[in-house]
Design a protein around this nucleic acid. Structure first.
Length: 274
DNA sequence: AAACGCGCCTGCGGGC
DNA sequence: TGCCCGCAGGCGCGTT
């Protein structure tokens, strides 16, 4: 379940190893993940090109090439992107392999196949259609109390659904939505427009803190998250409420309550959050 | 227009 | 033992 911190962890891990590497060829084991894989795009714009940098937009990883084209990858629920030696066993559900000039292989594996892999042709990444509707980056200055106030003040939706809405702010999945609402002491069931200015400021701040801390810890490994080198993250050790139904609140000891919002498990302290 | 609900997909854990 | 069921959930899209 890679959210922004996990995607950023993978990006940071891969970038130093991939910069200036040439992609010799690309092999596909499936024709479609979330969306169709257009093999001709890889022939035309990816193979025989060198990697210049890796960036991230929301939960997408972008591999930039020296012809100004880019490979856009989403890890979905269970996607992994990693570097392997040629001799390493190709694990089940490996869908794409990039063969690099130095003999290493960049492999994309995704059991649940919610992920995607597409090519933005040269110079088109700035107008990439899948990014068109995306909201602001939560760790940027564009995500600030004024912005969040504007997006919440007229909304009847629950606040948790609002901060998980990629059209408003990207990268926030279920784990970090739960955690940031805990630290800002806001009940996730509250209607967005009921938040005070003080609460909006607290939420903006706690979301940034939670995401930054999770990046520092190398992400959250619940079941299967691994970085580019197969190593787990450690932020799960610091989760205050997520997955902790009936366990004591780290602040006050009250049992953490579980409910469902928008079809997703929601955890909160009924004493601290109101 | 905003809000909500569904389907996609596989692995895993619990219950019997 | 082995099977079935429910859950995990980001995203686009259809419906209300």
């Amino acid at each position: 379940m890679p959210e922004l911190p996990e995607v950023e962890t993978i990006r940071r891990g891969l970038e130093p190893a991939l910069i200036s590497q040439k992609i010799i060829s690309t092999r596909f084991f499936v024709r479609k993940l979330r969306w169709d894989i257009v093999a001709s795009n890889f022939d035309n714009y990816v193979n025989q090109k060198s990697i210049t940098s890796l960036s991230r937009r929301g939960k997408y990883i972008i591999i930039h090439l020296d012809n100004e084209a880019a490979v856009v990858i989403h890890l979905g629920m269970s996607g992994r992107l990693g570097l392997f030696e040629q001799t390493a066993i190709v694990e089940k559900h490996t869908h794409v392999i990039f063969y690099l000039e130095n003999g290493m292989e960049l492999r994309f594996r995704d059991p649940r196949r919610f992920g995607s892999i597409e090519v933005a042709p040269p110079h088109l990444i700035s107008s990439y259609p899948r990014f068109a509707h995306l909201g602001v980056e939560p760790l940027s200055n564009n995500f600030n109390p004024q912005y969040l106030k504007k997006k919440t003040e007229k909304s009847d939706r629950g606040i948790k659904l609002v901060i998980m809405d990629a059209k408003i702010v990207v990268g926030v999945g279920n784990i970090y939505a739960n955690e940031s609402l805990f630290y800002s002491r806001i009940d996730p069931r509250r209607r967005a427009k009921s938040l005070s200015v003080k609460e909006i400021k607290a939420l903006e701040k706690s979301l940034k803190t939670v995401l930054n801390t999770a990046i520092e810890k190398g992400g959250t490994t619940l079941n299967d998250f691994r970085n580019a080198y197969g190593e787990p993250g450690f932020f799960q050790l610091e989760l205050a409420v997520y997955g902790r139904a009936d366990l004591p609140c780290p602040e006050c000891g009250t049992p953490i309550q579980k409910t469902v919002l928008g079809g997703r498990s929601t955890f909160f302290c009924p004493n601290c959050q109101n």
